[in-house]
Amino acid sequence: MDSTQSEPAGEPPDTNMERRSALRNRLLEWVKVDGDRLFLTIGISVGVFVLILVLNSIGAVAFTNDNSVTRMASGMIAGTFSLVTLVVSVNQLILSQEFSPASEHRNRFSGVMEFRRDLEEQTGVSTAPVEPTRVVEVLAEAIGDRASELSDSVANSTDEEFRQQVTQYAKSVEDSTKWIDEAFDQSDVEAFDALSVAVEYADGWQIHVARRLRNDASELTDETAATFDELIDTIRLFSTAQEHLKTVYLQRELAKFSQLTIYCGIPAVLSSISIALLYGDIGGATISTRFLPYVTSLLVTIVLVPLVLLAVFILRTATVTRRTSTVGPLLLQRPSNEKSVQVTINDTD
């Protein structure tokens, strides 16, 4: 019998590591952006409740010291009131953006209508769609068409290197627009998905590479130059749509956060008061020690719900704002290779 043993069949270690890394990245992306904020809040709150019970069962925490619990309850009351006050201030900031005189409102409305007319002109649709997902889809399709036209316009170019670079660039742009179509090819696509997909699109980098290829070309026909300009204008319109969707989303998201915090803030304050009253008797807690850990853990969890809401909502709004903080071709996430025409750059920080 041969003494050497064959390697077990299966995937290479590098493939397993890449799969685990991809799974971890998808999980982080779901927590930061894609996951439902209410579902995430409920899940974290349930986890906090279970964690407190586990810590109590192993003796790490206890609910028998009346003075410690009442001091904690007093701090919770003060903290909850401070959080609610902060949320009210945020809500006032949102409302201040909504109140505007007639002249300012007319300017904002005119800007939106001008954007819709530009969208109709660039994409060839008779009437610009009103659904955010359809706006992104229509623009992505137009960008893909412009990229295909750009590739065709350099097919007879005598500059081999320039033709290869433009063809590679056009194919990369087309692939990125196909990715958008695949992302929307679902029955449960919601309005936020439009912004989530638009944020991931490397529009600034595509504009940068297109301008570099156009400006550095040794020879450029009028047809190719015009196609470059049309592609850049369409991608720029996509950037405008991205910014508009982000502004509308942030206003609605922060308003929803304020509303939910008020809903949860009142039970949180009442729970804090209940904890203080629960241990307010001279002889100790007013309920049996058998049920005391469960009741106290539940009340503490309810008190922490507004804080969890703050964390999950601000995490998503901050992530979206960070990813769209630049205007135009400006790459802050990582060093760029100016000689490369690779445009499929996504950053999930």
Rank of each mutant, 00 (worst) to 15 (best):
F257C: 08
A22I: 06
A142C: 02
E182F: 08
S57V: 08
S57A: 10
D181V: 01
R24L: 15
T127W: 04
F238C: 05
D145A: 14
V303G: 01
L139R: 13
G328H: 03
I52F: 12
I287D: 00
T247L: 08
V305A: 00
E114K: 13
S258Y: 07
G43D: 09
A311P: 04
S258F: 02
I232G: 03
R290T: 13
V84D: 06
A155I: 07
V312P: 09
L93Y: 15
D14T: 13
A191M: 05
E137T: 10
V308S: 05
S172W: 06
N25R: 14
S96C: 00
V112E: 10
I77C: 07
V209W: 07
D36F: 11
T289G: 13
A191Q: 12
A210K: 01
V87I: 13
D349C: 03
L304R: 04
L260Q: 05
L304M: 13
V305D: 02
W205I: 12
A147Q: 04
I287G: 04
I345D: 11
T133E: 01
E121I: 13
T80A: 12
G124V: 00
E161C: 02
R214A: 09
A217C: 07
L304I: 12
L150Y: 02
V166A: 01
V48L: 15
T167L: 12
A276R: 01
F228A: 03
E104F: 10
V50G: 02
A78L: 15
A198H: 09
M113F: 13
G124F: 07
S340A: 12
G265Y: 04
M76R: 11
P101S: 14
D229Q: 02
Y263K: 12
Y279I: 10
L195R: 01
L23D: 15
F81I: 15
Q122K: 12
I232M: 06
R108A: 13
L119W: 03
A147C: 04
T177P: 07
G265T: 08
F313M: 00
G124S: 01
E18H: 11
L213C: 09
V327N: 11
N25A: 15
G280S: 07
S68M: 12
T41D: 03
S271H: 06
L310R: 08
R106I: 14
F257V: 01
E11L: 10
S110T: 12
S196A: 11
L304F: 12
D34T: 14
L309V: 01
A276P: 03
F192L: 01
E18L: 10
I302L: 15
R214Q: 11
L55D: 06
V166G: 08
E174V: 02
D216Y: 00
I94W: 01
N91T: 10
